[in-house]
């Protein structure tokens, strides 16, 4: 699996100066993958995966980020269900 960059950067050598497809991808990379995240109480009580992060970012963010979350969940032996469902089951 790959990030959005793999689809457009092959052989590119680009200095971004204005709006372009690449600058949109750079924006996606920054806005969706980085920045402050509010970890809610449910997240802290159930797992270290933010509910908002899982519900929103994984679905539309980079595959790399999604993989990181899934690998971490797998490492911790957490079943592939949402934190909300886990909380409800408890």
């Amino acid at each position: 699996m790959s990030s959005p960059f793999d689809q457009v950067l092959i052989g590119s050598d680009v200095q971004l100066t204005d709006e372009s497809e690449l600058s949109l991808l750079e924006t996606l990379d920054h806005v969706l993958n980085r920045g402050l995240v509010i970890a809610g109480e449910i997240t802290i009580a159930v797992a270290d995966v933010d509910l908002i992060f899982v519900g929103l970012n994984v679905l539309i963010s980079s595959v790399e980020t999604a993989n990181e979350v899934l690998r971490e969940r797998e490492r911790r032996g957490i079943a592939a269900v949402s934190p909300a469902k886990q909380a409800a089951d408890q």
Binding site: H30, V31, N33, G35, L36, I52, N57
Partner: peptide, 9 residues
Amino acid sequence: LPFRFGTAV
């Protein structure tokens, strides 16, 4: 300090 997209609380 920018927040990640999608933070609605």
